[in-house]
């Protein structure tokens, strides 16, 4: 999704109302309970929160010029990889095998066989339409953030085609956008 993404794609940046800010905080807290104690640090109630609207109904939640979360339409908020690397345990994790890394880093969606093979791992609690962290065999840090298309159990049984949509991956446009002015 962020394969080509630059400052030009941001159509508007607005400081949001306090009520909207509260709503965003609430939905992030609901989605990532592990992040709740940190939310006061990440999104202080007092300081202004900026939402950048981009093409394709994409929103970036920006705090102090650093993009922290993004979502599509009214979908769930997902952390950026830089944030996820700092707090890796906030998301459920999938793991792909080594052979898939190359393709994922080129922006490919995650196919079922890469998750079910010996190098991969699935978290069986995950249902469809859920954001997950994509880890890689033999690596410590996440390499992508995905949005499941199938429940984990179906991924195992179907074992074919796209299992997880690749939303955000290392070295894509959002990754390179470390700061936003």
């Amino acid at each position: 999704m962020f394969k080509k993404f630059s400052f030009e794609d941001i159509s508007a940046q607005n400081q949001v109302k306090a009520s909207v800010q509260r709503k965003i905080r609430q939905s992030i807290a609901d989605e990532y309970p592990g992040l709740e104690p940190l939310l006061d640090d990440l999104l202080p109630k007092k300081s202004p929160l900026i939402v950048a609207k981009c093409q394709n109904h994409l929103n970036l939640v920006v705090m102090n010029n650093v993009p922290l979360f993004f979502n599509v339409r009214d979908g769930p908020y997902m952390p950026t990889l830089r944030l996820l690397h700092q707090y890796p345990d906030i998301m459920k994790k999938f793991q792909v095998d080594r052979g898939a890394i190359k393709f994922v880093l080129a922006g490919a969606n995650i196919m079922c066989p890469g998750l079910t093979s010996p190098g991969g791992a699935l978290n069986d609690e995950v249902l469809e339409e859920t954001p997950v962290a994509i880890m890689a065999e033999g690596k410590e840090h996440a390499l992508a953030i995905g949005f499941t298309k199938l429940p984990a159990k179906d991924i195992r049984t179907v074992n074919k085609g796209i299992g997880v949509d690749n939303m955000h991956y290392l070295n894509d446009g959002l990754w390179k956008m470390e700061r936003l002015e």
Partner: peptide, 17 residues
């Protein structure tokens, strides 16, 4: 308790971990 942020080693050349 607040989990501490993990410090990730990013490459100085290409910026990836």
């Amino acid at each position: 308790e607040k989990p501490q942020p993990v410090r990730v080693l990013y490459c100085g050349v290409c910026g990836l971990p």
